[in-house]
Computed example of a mutant assay.
Amino acid sequence: MHVRVTFVAAARSSSLLAERFDDDRPLDQAGWHEVQLAAHGLVPLAAAELRYCSPTPRSRATGDALGYAPLAQVALRDCDMGRWRGLTLAEVTAREPGAVDAWLADPRSAPHGGESLLSFIARVGQWLDTRPADDGGRILVVAEPAVVRAALVYALKAPPATYWNIDVRPLSTVALTGRAGRWSLRLGGGGGLEAA
């Protein structure tokens, strides 16, 4: 018994340099434009039996714009960044350089008062492991890039530091196949890793 979970990274809500921790902003103009350009290749994924999304405005808007009508899942929320929420990495680094260094070096640390990277990866992994494993079943997830990165680290049983080396572009897709505790990365067309 196995299931295929295809992740679609939410469209952008800001430029890369303006990205903020735990951001609740909706899609920006560039994000809407990207959705329109990528729709032809992504709309067929709506055939999945189950469709979910992160509870953020941009994930919901991305899923709705693609016709997925996804169900928001609290477990798929972005990492809780505590007092850093709403700030850019540059802003936090200017205010708390030592705390940023500790956060980047130790996946168990949470100097911001929120969730550690290790806890975040475990939360997303637990959600992944509780998906129904109907043989050949398909699940679609529109999520924040951070959630996709956490799912990949968990599924591949990679060291937590690997999280920092995974680049998830807006509207890219990646598929995981398997069942609780036994996941494989699927590359290629039809739900593989593709940049939109």
Rank of each mutant, 00 (worst) to 15 (best):
D167W: 08
A99K: 04
W183N: 12
L71K: 03
P145G: 15
I139M: 02
L156R: 05
R83P: 05
A151V: 09
G67M: 09
T162Y: 08
W103H: 13
D80A: 14
D78R: 07
F7W: 02
T130G: 12
L152R: 06
R149S: 09
V142F: 07
M1N: 07
E144K: 11
Y68L: 13
P160I: 11
A133W: 03
P107Y: 03
S109P: 00
R25P: 08
L45N: 05
P145C: 15
S116F: 12
G41Y: 00
V8Y: 00
A175E: 01
L128Y: 00
A133Q: 09
V124W: 02
G192H: 01
L27Q: 07
N165V: 06
G125D: 07
D28A: 12
P160H: 06
P170Y: 03
H33M: 12
A110W: 02
V74S: 10
Y52D: 00
D135S: 05
A39S: 12
A61M: 11
P160S: 11
V124D: 04
G113H: 04
Y52K: 01
L27V: 07
R85S: 14
L50V: 09
A146E: 15
T62R: 02
V153I: 14
Y154W: 15
L45Y: 09
Q36S: 14
L17E: 15
L45Q: 05
K157C: 13
Y52N: 03
G137V: 04
V141M: 13
R123G: 10
A146N: 12
L140I: 11
G192P: 00
S54K: 01
D80Y: 05
D167R: 14
R108N: 06
D78N: 10
Q73A: 13
A161Y: 04
L16W: 03
T6A: 05
V74C: 04
A18K: 12
L117V: 07
R169G: 06
G189R: 08
L118I: 13
P111Q: 02
A122L: 13
D106S: 08
P159V: 12
H2D: 14
Q73M: 13
P145V: 15
G190I: 04
S59C: 14
A150Y: 01
I121D: 06
A196N: 00
